[in-house]
């Protein structure tokens, strides 16, 4: 009888071939640490963090534009808390705020509507960063802006889609054996997209939830598939993820946004991996990212290698020395879902 205890025992005692599993999603990285999952696995099973930290992969020039807006008269930047500590080429939003910049943290993008209506003389810019889980909410925001005829609220987008990034890794990084697919992105995009990838790249693609039990079960399934030379898509988060995903949300995304090449901090341009506002909605665009975006990679920074799963954070020579959460060199250390920040705060030094 398979119980949590028997499965944990098997994972701890696993002595088959070495397996490198990429957990794509920053929330998975966080949950893995919160539950102490690595300590439950055999050393032959390695969990490597992937590029699923939208803040980490946002170009530093995007942050610079936000900082500039925050310091402009009669302007206010609205953002999720995640963005506050990420450095542009000079400043973070937290530092801009300390200099008198106008920045407010919101729980939901839809809160921007109330802010804009209450302060008609202020120009608001919402820092619209995220993957497919959050993108439909930005689409809802545009709808609300139009419906309420709001003239003082625009969005600055840095929107990325995860499948092109995973494909990039499959093509360019041969050492990853399997993927723990992002649970909540999959709620939107559905599970069927991964079936083709599993056959094409001959690797298991398992969709997992975020409770400790979900993750343990997903890792077990991956190990089972690899031990049996199988590779398939398996949806282990069926309470929330369906085969086709959330059709309403997908339709809304593509009503307002269209695919484009996009720049990933630390990686470079990935074809078709971004979403930007369609031309007819350009009035709501406050100067979003494009494939012309630039990035200043600090000397010695190995964020690229970390994001692509080539190295674990501890293998970066700057980790824990020149690069710490209080004195971060790269985005991976600063963002609350960046692999390096999570590893450091959980003392994997």
């Amino acid at each position: 009888m398979k119980t949590l205890e028997t499965i944990k025992k098997e994972l701890k005692e696993y002595d088959g071939k070495n397996i490198k599993i990429m957990e794509v999603c920053g929330t998975h990285t966080s949950s893995i640490f919160k539950n102490g999952i690595r300590s439950l696995l055999s050393p032959r099973i390695q969990l490597i963090s992937g590029p699923g930290c939208p803040v980490c992969v946002t170009a530093s020039s995007y942050i610079d534009r936000l900082v500039e807006y925050s310091l402009k008269d009669n302007h206010c930047v609205l953002t999720f808390g995640d963005m506050m500590k990420v450095k542009g080429s000079k400043l973070t939003l937290t530092e801009a705020k300390a200099m008198g910049g106008n920045v407010k943290i919101l729980y939901s993008p839809l809160g921007a509507i109330k802010a804009a209506m209450k302060n008609p003389d202020t120009q608001f810019v919402f820092a619209a960063v995220g993957f497919e889980t959050t993108i439909p909410i930005y689409a809802l925001l545009i709808e609300e802006i139009i419906k309420n005829n709001i003239k003082n609220l625009r969005i600055m987008t840095s929107l990325k889609t995860i499948i092109p990034a995973i494909s990039y890794i499959c093509v360019n990084e041969k050492k990853i054996d399997a993927f723990l697919c992002p649970g909540h992105v999959s709620v939107i995009i559905g599970s069927s997209v991964y079936s083709e990838m599993a056959s094409k790249y001959r690797k298991p693609f398992v969709i997992g939830g975020f409770e400790g039990g979900h993750i343990i079960a997903a890792v077990y399934e991956i190990v089972r598939q690899i031990s049996n030379n199988e590779y398939s898509m398996k949806n282990m988060y069926q309470s929330a993820v369906s085969s086709e995903g959330n059709e309403k949300a997908k339709a809304l995304i593509y009503k307002y946004f269209e695919a484009a090449d996009d720049y990933w901090r630390g990686i470079g341009i990935i074809e078709g991996s971004g979403l930007r506002l369609k031309a007819e909605y350009k009035d709501f665009d406050a100067g979003s990212t494009s494939s012309e975006d630039v990035d200043i990679t600090p000397a010695g920074c190995k964020c690229t290698d970390v994001i692509l799963g080539r190295i674990a954070p501890v293998e970066c020579p700057l980790f824990g020395k020149a690069c710490t959460p209080l004195n971060a060199v790269g985005a991976c250390m600063v963002s609350s879902e960046g692999a390096c920040g999570i590893w450091y705060r959980n003392c994997e030094v």
């Binding site: 949590l4 944990k8 920053g26 929330t27 640490f33 919160k34 539950n35 102490g36 999952i37 690595r38 300590s39 439950l40 930290c53 939208p54 803040v55 999720f80 808390g81 995640d82 506050m84 500590k85 943290i105 729980y107 995220g130 959050t134 400790g212 039990g213 343990i216 959460p325 209080l326 963002s335 609350s336 879902e337 920040g341 450091y344 705060r345 959980n346 003392c347 994997e348």
Partner: peptide, 20 residues
């Protein structure tokens, strides 16, 4: 609660709300 082991460091920065 899963009987795993998690190392707890001090708080870095402010504990801000996250969506990611």
């Amino acid at each position: 609660t899963l009987q795993g082991s998690r190392i707890l460091d001090v708080l870095y920065g402010e504990g801000l709300p996250r969506i990611c």
